[in-house]
């Protein structure tokens, strides 16, 4: 579902003397359907960078990134937009809150964008919010004033509302209590059972062990520092 081969990336900081920071080199990995792979490595090793390159908000300078059969390296914006709408789900670390938009709408949005009817989309959003223990009285409110843990659960509800064939998870169990953490692990297990290919970052070693079959240490994709 995800095939990455010989991917490289560097940042060029034009306004800081044109400094060139190579951040990734020769990154290769494959995630099969029904499998969850964990990205591990110290902070700064490039876990999030690699994940952002797969999501497409970081440009890939060399190599190939194929997701659900689509080549993402140097792809046209509309190819990435279509992939995100249909095939690629992403649970980011933080919810991007939009003032005035109610929680239930935020969760239902991926379904509405695919043309699912409003009644059906809202019904599924309600079910997902209930499963993640968000009190019903909050569904009609904007998550602006929610706690960190509540916002993260809204984010997870949105990420799992559709059966994406490929999913990226960035710390999905961070800032959750034990009960909600268990719900998230169950959602991941179910997604794998239906054949989703998942790539995740989990600092929580227990959670990682519970859902991931394999792990890749991104440190081996980190270019040597110092000579530049």
């Amino acid at each position: 579902m995800i095939e990455i081969s010989e991917v490289g990336k560097r940042f060029v900081l034009h306004n800081q003397g044109g400094a060139v920071l190579p951040v990734m080199e020769g990154a290769s990995l494959t995630v099969a359907p029904g499998e969850c792979m964990a990205l591990v490595g110290a902070s700064g090793a490039g876990k999030s960078t690699l994940m952002r390159m797969i999501w497409g908000n970081y440009r890939c300078d060399e190599g190939s990134i194929r997701v659900a059969g689509v080549e993402l390296c140097k792809a046209e914006p509309r190819a990435v937009i279509a992939l995100r709408r249909q095939s690629l789900g992403y649970v980011s670390q933080f919810l991007r809150v939009i003032p005035r938009v109610p929680t239930v709408q935020i969760v239902a949005e991926p379904l509405l964008a695919q043309g699912v009817g409003e009644d059906m989309a809202l019904a599924r959003a309600h079910a997902m919010l209930a499963r993640l223990n968000i009190p019903q009285r909050l569904w009609g409110l904007s998550p602006t004033t929610f706690s960190g843990g509540e916002q993260q659960r809204v984010n997870i509800a949105r990420g799992f509302i559709h059966d994406w064939p490929v999913m990226l998870l960035d710390e999905p169990t961070a800032s959750l209590d034990a009960a909600n953490r268990a719900v998230v692990l169950e959602l991941i297990t179910q997604a794998k059972a239906r054949g989703a290919g998942i790539l995740g970052i989990f600092h929580d070693a227990e959670a990682r062990a519970a859902v991931c079959e394999r792990e890749v240490d991104v440190t081996r994709f980190t270019p040597a520092r110092g000579e530049a």
Partner: peptide
Amino acid sequence: QGLTDQVLDDPQHAYTQLLVS
């Protein structure tokens, strides 16, 4: 030019980098 979040999160041109920062 490009995908909105890509241009804003990973700007390539000096002017865009200045704008975003």
